[in-house]
Design a protein around this nucleic acid. Structure first.
Lengths: 216, 216, 216, 216
DNA sequence: TATGAATGAGAATTCATTCAT
DNA sequence: TATGAATGAATTCTCATTCAT
């Protein structure tokens, strides 16, 4: 649970301290949780610092002690999301060679879906702000890591197609994660997406012959 | 405009300005266009009525005579998008039986992509507000219309799977439309999506024979 | 009475309109007057937009319609002060050759004192902010204009000493203007300053022999 | 400090840090120094207790144990400045009778300039707050002390003119001190001020003979 | 005692919307 | 009717000061 020290652009390098007493750590955790929840509900713009403070039972002044501005909250949520990433992928990589494409798909979709499902994350990645940098950093890191796993599974896959495939798989998982709230629980759309992704991966990673692009 | 403007000759050079007396239709169109553009750039929350007024060369007071509030602008944009919908689908339905799944996919993706590509639309559909109603109305209308076309093409498809498939196809097209700005022009990701959608539709709509792997 | 259009550094070029109705013009004048008064009393930092609004019987939103931010108010005050500058100096230049040094001193001190006495101005020039630019612009413009007058009066004065002398005279007038509130009305300190400036100018602009630096 | 620090040897490497157990005097001095520096940079309003604490390696809680509030810091800086005052003037008074006016001027300007040059002082004296009292106390003390020295030097000077002259000399020194940061190092403006003050004192304190123009 | 944390009254600024001329 | 102006609640962020451990 890292706190952004926040250097960035502007004038005041007002040093915000990471929490040092257990009390502070709890507070920070509570704030992040509340922030994620509010952002999930209302999006980044719609989330107000006042509401985040209130939901985490924090006074506004205390909130700003730990997070120097609204953006730093968002940053922290995104950065935290990136931390489990490598561990999860490494674990998957371990046995990835033995996996059928079907199993690979299932594991990947689950893994990425879990990632995107972290509260607040998807809303943040979709935010209309000058976020291109953070968003792109995150997307790119994720894409590269996924591409690596794909190339581990299918060693004769070269870099460019691996990157393309990774993007597609990521977007599929993101789509499901993003709309999960709108699918009723009985909806089979998530399953359809998993199936579709399987078909796609079979076509791209499967036997050499099927790997050819479908001739237009 | 018979001759070049006489700046210094006449009494009131007022007529030089943008056509103040334009009839309502033109004005409304200009406003909607500006609104869509601004929303595309900054999102619904980020778009201000002042900027929309300015870009459409409308005075803020006049803007409110055509659209009583910000939401009515958004409504109109979304509603307008629904109007071409039926015409386009009807046209497609006419010859849909004769289409191969590949051709069907291409037509559908193009049609839906075009729809989502209307300025402002995607941003509006993704807006985090109390929009669930409009968004759902739109999504549902689109899904039902697409499901109908799918059932026209593949008569033995029943309602539930048709709806599911429709959702998947819609989300695919939406994903591509949404991210188009971030794909560099050489990116093959849009093509990958089309291919993936083809594979998916072949699996769901295809006759047993067509479900087989395409022989090289 | 110019309104700064404000381009500067940041993101939003929110176009602030100059007032177009008589009502607006009155409002702007009232705001500037109130701003100058409050700044005179409390300094730039101490002046709040709320108080400026209240004193000018303006609601805060209206204030921001005409002045996009606090700094633009200050800018306008400073810029306005520069406008009368040239006219006043030109008038002085007309007959400057005929003036004795004593008369020259009196005229200059009066002119510059008047300038610095404009409400708010001195406080603004002394403000501790990133104002170096505006302050320096103003100081430099004033110095150059004064140097020109000095060289008109004493043609064999070269550029560098003229600039130095100008700075000294300006600082003298500024000192008197700045402390005027603290001198009781019977204080002879302002007169002493005028006399001192006379002595100084006589030494610098007087007969060639006395123009030499006093040997240390 | 007998030997170089054994980082890795001992049990508690805590002593490496800044001396936490410094006695109060050192701590207070460090705080005052930091406060003066910050105030010099940002002015009284712009200086924050947090930054002062940080720069003096003091925890904010401790800072408040030495200085109960921000104003007490400022007070202390100003009061400290008054302490050397008498000693310095007394020393000057000792031989003041023997001094030429030129020498007197040089000594006075140097002495007062030094005084005003103490970090933070000028900014504090110029602060726009409810400071009139402290400021006036300081100014008045300084003026009276300087007047005394002037009357020691020139016994037939009466009280009122002595006070006026003192004010002028003080303001001159203050002006130079205040703007020293803005004069480039090659600027002759400070010299001009010294010369001007000499001329002024010669005119006010000089014997009839010395009032004559100095022959070249 | 030392110090990290809590507090909350403001401050600047924005913007949808209404209104008066 | 056209439109410049008025409105004010809402929002982000600051900082001196106090407190609990």
């Amino acid at each position: 649970m890292s706190i952004s020290s926040h250097k960035s652009s502007a004038k005041k390098p007002r040093a915000i301290q990471a929490p040092q007493r257990s009390n502070g750590k709890l507070r920070v955790a509570a704030i992040l949780e509340a922030a994620a929840a509010v952002i999930d509900e209302k999006g980044y713009e719609g989330a107000t610092m006042a509401e985040i403070a209130e939901r985490s039972c924090t006074k506004i002044g205390s909130l700003y002690r730990f997070f120097p501005n609204k953006e730093s909250l968002a940053d922290t949520i995104v950065v935290n999301a990136r931390q489990n990433l490598d561990a999860a992928f490494n674990q998957l990589d371990a046995g990835v060679n033995a996996l059928s494409i079907r199993a690979l798909t299932d594991h990947l979709m689950a893994l990425i879906f879990d990632l995107f499902t972290r509260p607040g994350l998807i809303k943040l990645l979709d935010t209309d702000r000058d976020w291109s940098v953070k968003r792109e950093e995150f997307r790119s890191a994720l894409e590269q890591r996924l591409a690596k796993t794909l190339m581990t599974h299918t060693p004769d896959l070269s870099k460019k197609p691996a990157a393309d495939i990774a993007q597609v798989v990521l977007l599929n998982a993101k789509t499901v994660a993003k709309h999960r709230a709108y699918f009723d629980s009985a909806s089979s759309v998530p399953d359809e997406f998993r199936d579709m992704t399987r078909l796609y991966l079979q076509s791209r990673l499967g036997s050499p012959v099927s790997k050819k692009r479908i001739p237009s």
